[in-house]
Design a protein around this nucleic acid. Structure first.
Lengths: 267, 267
DNA sequence: GTCCAAAAGTCTGGAATCAGACCATTGAGG
DNA sequence: CCTCAATGGTCTGATTCCAGACTTTTGGAC
């Protein structure tokens, strides 16, 4: 069980290219609108699949002890072939994230619990992704989550939706320390998913997973949790109140708090 | 020159799968957080590339008469092989979007001007993408553009940035009717790109291109332009003022106006 | 104990995609 | 007119990825 081995470093190394950045001088037409000529795909199917599964595990979408969907179904959901999926699963198995059992009631079981952060983990995580990418990710997250909160606060909420939101809020507040991050994620993602826009939900999930490694690298401290609880409550209240501006302000404050916390640990 | 032929319908048909949607019943772990198990890739490299280039053309990133970057450079920027890129270019050439000339100073020149919309175009465009996807796209766009505006209004703007924003605003206002949509896009994308977050810029570009076909299918009317001009000015002012809430509110109003316009033409 | 269904494991032929080398065309500048 | 450099056009062998059929393992139900 080699828990520390993140696939990005070890097992996963099947890229065809040596991965070097492109030059960014030439600009066409609408000055600065380079975004459209960005890479069409992030890597090969195998790498992207490993990344996805790893995020599903680290985000707790599939919690400890549970199993991933069956290979055939998962492959179809991810839009890849079973062969490629199996390679990804094997990589994660070898890295100690999954335990694969065959036969009926078998499957790929998650055997991974976020390790308690050690000094230097954060620094290392930041180094791995780069300072600029960190700022990019934080900004992106701020934007999409604020937007999602605004959308949800603007919408007419059904009783079921109100209930879900309240339940998720309660979930974070009642969470055991070991489960805190997972429930926090569930709360934040709920806002995005309740908006009813799959694109928006995907964007928020994407934003979150870009900072999970970082958040997992800092300890969960009592005062921070309490502070977050107040902010979470404010967010939920504003949404249930149907006050878009307040909802957004609350989300912005909350996320900026988190960002500040991160930066603080880095300084 | 078969202008009406959109690659999605004709030339582009090299998919390996018959493309049928997956079932959405099973839910894992964090209830509802299905977003992470979404398809890893939208299609094959060829299709995605065609789509990208087409959007760059339709969005006016590469305007009429200009040429795309050289094949070798473009392929590297898009992260695909030259072979695949060339296939995509050929498809677009056959569909009448590009004119490819060889020799020095040659290249793939854009020969496409958005046709003036005809009755029924919108209906057809919506049918092609689906009602739900339309709502999804509009919601997504609202969220990310509001978020981007908030971020930009919160940031400390350099004189250069303020200048760029003002220039883009002037650009829309001074635009000839034929160039209106292009300049409108430039203004909206500028907000995203000035935020300094590539992820956010990409999200906004993505959101916009999901509705371009629809917007291109409705006529550009005088009163609408004037109305939009007022809103654009309000957005820019709020951002330059450093007022996040106002900026967001202005963007929300503007985009909801556009959405209403679209829905109106559909009714 | 036997049977069955659901799951992982294996194999195959073929399509898509790649990197890289090389060829052909073109217009500008000498 | 010739040369040169930048560009598209072509070819090749290797790698990745695919769909689908088949095999093996497993635990529950009877």
């Amino acid at each position: 069980m080699r828990m520390e081995i993140t696939p990005a470093e070890a097992s996963v190394s099947r890229s065809r290219t040596p991965a070097e950045p492109a030059s960014r001088d030439a600009v066409v037409g609408i000055t600065g609108a380079v975004s459209l000529l960005r890479p069409v795909r992030a890597g090969n199917a195998f790498e992207e699949t490993v990344e996805r599964l790893l995020q599903a595990i680290k985000l707790g979408v599939v919690p400890y002890g549970e199993k991933l969907p069956a290979e055939r179904e998962l492959a179809s959901r991810l839009g890849i072939s079973r062969v490629t999926l199996r390679e990804a699963i094997r990589a994660l198995q070898e890295a100690g994230y999954l335990d694969v059992r065959r036969g009926r009631y078998g499957g790929a079981f998650v055997v991974y619990q976020p390790p308690s952060p050690r000094k230097g983990d954060l620094r290392r995580a930041v180094t791995r992704m780069g300072e600029d990418d960190l700022e990019d990710a934080l900004t992106f997250r701020l934007a999409v989550e604020c937007g999602a909160a605004r959308v949800l606060a603007t919408a007419e909420l059904s009783p079921g939706q109100r209930e879900t939101l309240a339940a998720r809020l309660a979930g974070v507040n009642d969470a055991a320390p070991a489960d805190y991050r997972r429930m926090d994620i569930a709360f934040h993602l709920a806002i995005a998913e309740l908006s009813g826009s799959p694109l928006l939900a995907a964007a928020c999930a994407d934003a979150r997973l870009r900072v999970t490694d970082l958040l997992n690298a800092i300890p969960v401290l009592r005062p921070n949790i309490e502070h977050a609880a107040v902010q979470h409550a404010a967010i939920a209240a504003a949404i249930l109140d149907g006050d878009p501006e307040a909802a957004e302000r609350a989300v912005a404050e909350h996320l900026e708090g988190t960002a500040a916390l991160l930066r603080g640990f880095l300084a």
